[in-house]
Every structure is written in C-alpha cells, then in structure tokens.
Design a protein around this nucleic acid. Sequence first.
DNA 1: CGTGTTTCTGCACGTTTCTGCCGTATTGTG
DNA 2: CACAATACGGCAGAAACGTGCAGAAACACG
Lengths: 252, 252
Amino acid sequence: MLVAERRELLLTRLSSEGKIIAADVARELGISEDSIRRDLRDLAAAGHCQRVYGGAVPVSRALVDYRSRASVEPESKRRIAARAVQLIKPGDRVILDGGTTTLAVVHALPADLEATIITHSPTIAAALIEHPSVEILLLGGRIYKHSAVACGAAAAEAARAITGDLFLLGVTGVHAEQGLTTGDAEEAAMKRTLAAQAADTYVLASAEKIGAVSPYLVLTLDAITAIITDASPGSTALQALQRTAPAVMLAA
Amino acid sequence: MLVAERRELLLTRLSSEGKIIAADVARELGISEDSIRRDLRDLAAAGHCQRVYGGAVPVSRALVDYRSRASVEPESKRRIAARAVQLIKPGDRVILDGGTTTLAVVHALPADLEATIITHSPTIAAALIEHPSVEILLLGGRIYKHSAVACGAAAAEAARAITGDLFLLGVTGVHAEQGLTTGDAEEAAMKRTLAAQAADTYVLASAEKIGAVSPYLVLTLDAITAIITDASPGSTALQALQRTAPAVMLAA
DNA sequence: CGTGTTTCTGCACGTTTCTGCCGTATTGTG
DNA sequence: CACAATACGGCAGAAACGTGCAGAAACACG
C-alpha cells in the first residue's frame, strides 16, 4: 500500500467516523503505530486534521483544542490588547469584535480615551459601561450562545448602518494559505460584514492561533491591514505568515 | 474512547443539559470519577466551564455569573423575580427591561425554560448567555451609561420591529396618582416604546419604590396589567395603590 | 546496470500523559 | 457538631509520545 494511499484512507476514515484511534488503525492495516503517528503528524501540519492524545479528530473540532487553550495565560492577551489599544486615536470609531482577547482590549483602554466603541457583543458592551468616557454603540440581533455575540440578518443590517475607522477582529485560526478562520458559519459572516464597514481591519491572535485552521473562512489575508500577535518571531508558522500577510505586529 | 472525545462529550452535555454531575457521567462512561474531575478541572482552566461542587456548569462569559451572583441578591428582589417568572409560559416572547430587579429575573429562570427573551440591556443579555435554553434577542443602539441600556432613535426603531407577550418593567417610582416614573427622560421613552410592543406589561417594584416619585413619567397606571411587589400589605402607600392600580401581586 | 540519495519503516529508549487508587482535606447538610 | 459527599495531591502502572537509528525500499542519474 502506498503512503499517499494510506493517508487518504486516514482522512476518509476521519470524516466518516469522526475520529481516528492510532492503535486501532495500526492493527487493522498491519503496520506499526509509529507510522500512523507520523502520518497523523504530517496531516495535522498540513491542516487536514487535529492531533489529539491517542489519535486525531477533524479540524472542525479544533475549536475544542484543550491543550493549547489551557496554556493560554491572560498575560498574552493583555500584551496583545495593549498593542491594539495604541492603534486607537482620540475620536475614532472602533468596531470591537466579541471574544476574550477583545475583552482584554476593553480593560486596556486608557481611562481618558474619548472614542466610540461599536460592538455586537453584549459582554463587551457590559464591560464598557464602567469606562468613564467612551461612547458605546451596541449592534442588536439574535444572540448566538456559542460565541456570545449578535449574528444573523438583523445584526448584519444594524452593522451596515454604521462605519468605523478600525475593526479589531478576533479569530481562532490564522494561516498563511487558509487565511482567517473561525468555528461558526454565522459568526464568520458577521465578522466579514463588520470588516466591510471599517477602513482598517486588525486581527488579534495569540500565539496558538498562528498556523491554526478552523472550519469557516472569515477573510483572506489580503483583506486585512495587519495581524497583532505575541507569537515568537522564530516560529515557522509565523515566518510563513510574514511572507503572505500584509503586516505582522509583534506585541512585546 | 479518546480523551479529547470524552471532553468534547462533556462540553456537549454541558450545553444541552446546563450542568454536569461528575458521578453520573463517570458511571455512564464506565470510568472513575477522578478522571471526570480531572477533565472538568482542565476544561475549567481552559475557560470552557466553571467548576462547582459535584460537577460543572457553563462558563461565565458574562461579567455577572448566572448562578453565584443570585446568592448575593437581596432577598426582596429574589422574591419578586420568582413571582414574575411564574407569569412566563413556555414559548413566550418576554421583553425584559434593564436593571437589578430584572437581572434577578434572569437568575430565577428555570433552566429548562424554552422562551425568547428580548432585551435592550447588554448586562441582561450577557447574563442570559449562561442559560441553556432561552433564545436571546438583543435590541441595539447607543448605550446610556447611567442606566446601562440601549436608548435613543436606533433602539426605539429596533424595538418597534418586535412584539412580545409580556413586558417585565422596572421603574424607580410607583405612585397612585403620579403613575410610573424613572430618573432619565430617554430611558422613560424607551420603556414606553417597549410597553407598546407587549400584550401585557408587569411592573417589578420592591417595597421602597412604592409611593416614590421620580422626575420622568413612564406610563400611567391604567396602561399596565399588574404590579409585582414585596411591599407589606399594611403600608399606606400600597393601600393607596391598590385603589388605583389595575392589579397588585404580592411576592411571598 | 551501478551507485549515491531520499524516503519509508520498525525498533529501542527515555519522556510525557493518562488513569485508578488511596489518604487527607474541604465542603455541604442536617 | 457530626456525618456524608466531594475535592485534592501524590503515587505507580499503563499507554502513548517523540526521537534517533539502522535497514529496506524506491528513486535519480550517469
């Protein structure tokens, strides 16, 4: 059996059964687990599957990436947020995406900043209420509990009624070829709509998002202004990105 | 079964049932409670759920925690909220006003309630995200910081696009002659607009609001269906109200 | 055909992760 | 306060992982 053939079989099996258990496949095919592990490692590197302990699962489930998320310390989000805040000029209309990274942006805003923050996240809006000077514009609609933001037709319509100077976007995957991706289709559409309303779009992505791919495309890399990340400059995923992305801003 | 698979199952179960009981899951899956506890601990560390004694509940993406905050709410608000919740029938479209009393209503909602909650308060919406089954419709607009709700032209327009079966209204003054009053003109107008969209309007007012008057009129008493309060039946203010108001429901 | 190179494969070894158990501490309940 | 349920940390065995290595197969090229 050819290697390529075997790997194809792995992918087929992955989509049909929703998972791969390395030990099982190795026994069925009569080859060592080492080879299967090597296959899975390569497939994962190519973005075709997600490696987990004992085997692999489809990328579509990558949103539950426990190991990497467990290692996400608030410190990295705080650094990224601090860098993002520097982009905001007094009087700007800032469109702020939902998510924990953008929530960190709220906490990083200078107390005397006079700007308008536009968001479709009730969580972000609720946090902003305590800020003394920013104006808050809330985009309404049906709340998707999965992502805790307003999505759908009503939210998109509300979004198209406004414009912003910059959009601070959060995604779960930033990949040199696959572009910006996230785990929910409606959410992806909403992010795209918001990006269309802003003069500049900045992506906020902590290190573990760099090189990752989620199921739904938000935007291609050429549609954004820059990526703000804390990924280490030496990482291969970041270097690949720097050859494709318009700009990469490193958060010290 | 893969570890990742099991943890995914836990999250699925968490969102579908609103909670996880470690002992139950351990028995069903035929593994030790220790492993489940370890899973829940890691998931909690990754921000996917919140650990509680005996298992886990959905994570608080909101500033206010769905459950724990309920324990620090004044007993009076809890009682009023409990009474108000009884008015909601499965499938209802409930318009929920902003404020601490209506926030207590969120915490008093049964976990299995299937209803649509419509609100112009980001705080209310953020708290509702924790609820396993209700649908949330957020009315957007400019956020007024003193009242922490969306008001103004855009919010009113969004409100006129929806209808509700009942409106749970919070005010700062309930007076036999002066009617229902509040402290902000824009806020009063928004409450009036919401009342117009609902078949029934119920006022939630703790004892100290009964007999009080604030600067801006929201509605006259004949425009509402009933008042829910915990005021003592003997108080003169309540007795005066009972001669004028359509109905007064006492929260035991 | 011969030879040097690359790729694939299995094995061995040390490391990491997972799991169940046990003793102890903590929490909830009456 | 007492009792039961639950949580936590440490421990040891098992399973899975990554890596380096060497042999085998496939390949490229003169």
